[in-house]
Amino acid sequence: MKKIFLLILIAISSFGCEDVIDIDLPSAPPRLVINASLERNFQSDGSFKDIAIVRLSLSTPFFSTEKKYVEDAIVTITNLNTNQVFTIENTPFNTGTYQNQSKDLLVIEPDTNYKLTVIHNNTTYESIEQLNVSTPIDEATQIKNTNNFDEDEFAIEIKYTDIPNMTNFYVFDFGWGNLQSINHEDFFEDGKQTPTTQFFEETRGDVFRIRLLGSDKRFNNYINALVQLSGETSNGPFSTVPFKAKGNIINTNNPEDFPFGYFHVNEVYAIDVNLVPNSEL
């Protein structure tokens, strides 16, 4: 549905005029941003590779180009079924990245509660989530883009089969922050193969990786909120009223001082597409 607004905006912008301006913005104290992902990645050999990556940073003034990473936090993930605690250790790259150690043998299983704990500046942040299962991508083929508006755009037709007998939520990750949530809740045939054609503005390399993440309603809502707030339709005449995108992580010491970010546990299937120029199709 977001695309509709984009098309409407194209219609309006075609005779409107857009320019970048300088503007004074209100100021606010920084918040901790926790980007915590626990992924069970399907491998070509049929096994799963389980990875925990947590990125910690602070929010910065909107126009600032400086990144503020947090390197001095303690990050753990607890399997609440077994009470096994995994320490997610800071990597030496000064990018606020924390990763699980392969020696820890972290295994992500369905129907298990995982608790994320981040301790920073004597404050404890927590979130509890379960694995969301996904489904393989059956097919992904580049097709000729007949859209006359943007010849540089390329189009990919993707087919996947919905998991039957349950309400499923998925998130497509096309890389570079291009995410799209899909709710197989109301309008889709349950368990049916679903085709979708997606259009992309730019290529970064010849191989295009598509990842399909299992999700739930709250994570899909969160993704939608982020896309809405950061995307091209944000704050336009047809944008929804902007808001603070709160995630699922709480500050256990002072709930008012909530962190940004999300703790998500996903099963992931991926597929690579070799891209060719539109004219060669």
Partner: peptide, 17 residues
């Protein structure tokens, strides 16, 4: 509604606060 800060809650997505 104007933003004050920015943050990156998922890789590659920069969101205004």
């Amino acid at each position: 509604t104007f933003p004050s800060n920015q943050f990156e809650p998922l890789d590659g997505i920069i969101v205004p606060e």
